[in-house]
């Protein structure tokens, strides 16, 4: 009985040592496959949830936290910043400039407010800064008038901005004008409501 216990104890210790060495290897050297949550460009962070082939799940929700992506599923992992830089320096450095969005407002019809007209040079500069910019232009209206007329008005506004940018020499890879009509107000209002902040075009430069 005593001998059996000793042998069980030895087996336990030996398993623990193997586990400890395994943990040290993961912490000290590059693990095979892993993921690290990073802070968002605007600050703060979201979270990720990894589901392994076996159905095993693990998540991370703090920037800097990591998961080993093992064949038998994800496991919590500690990785130092130097390791992250060694493994991901090239991928991080290849990040393109983040997309920029601009909101332009209208007097009514397709005429931009003076303030918004004055923002065009900023948009042109954002396009020129990027070696391969593509641009999307989405037109919106307030809820005055019927919905289908507003689809058309939103598109006319987006097209007007596209022509203005083209006439100022913008040459992105692609410049798409589309309309959300009155369906996507910045400020929710009842139907048939004048709202200058909803008479807008959103320009995104990627």
């Amino acid at each position: 009985m005593r001998i059996a216990m000793n042998s069980a104890r030895r087996a336990f210790l030996s398993r623990s040592a193997a586990g400890l060495i395994g943990a040290l290897l993961l912490a000290g050297c590059a693990p095979q496959s892993y993921l690290v949550l990073l802070e968002n460009p605007g600050g703060g962070n979201g979270k990720v949830l990894v589901t392994g082939a076996s159905g095993r799940q693990a998540g991370v929700e703090r920037a800097g936290d990591a998961l080993a992506l093992n064949a038998d599923g994800p496991r919590p992992l500690v990785v130092d910043a130097d390791q992250v830089q060694r493994d991901f320096g090239a991928a991080l450095a290849a990040q393109p400039p983040l997309p920029e969005s601009f909101l332009l407002y209208f007097e009514g019809g397709e005429r931009l407010t003076a303030e918004s007209l004055a923002r065009l040079p900023d948009i042109l500069a954002a396009i020129a800064r990027r070696p391969a910019a593509d641009v999307s232009i989405i037109g919106h209206t307030d809820t005055m008038g019927n919905a289908s007329a507003n689809e058309g008005l939103g598109l006319a506004r987006a097209e007007a901005v596209r022509k203005l940018l083209e006439s100022e020499g913008a040459k992105p890879l692609e410049m798409n004008a589309t309309s959300h009509g009155e369906r996507n107000p910045l400020i929710p209002t009842p139907d048939e409501t004048q709202e200058p902040r909803n008479r807008r075009v959103e320009v995104t430069v990627r």
Partner: peptide, 15 residues
């Protein structure tokens, strides 16, 4: 080895 579900965030992954 698995599927990463993304909840509005930034991350790096190595395979």
């Amino acid at each position: 080895t698995g599927t990463i579900g993304v909840r509005g965030t930034r991350f790096v992954v190595k395979v």
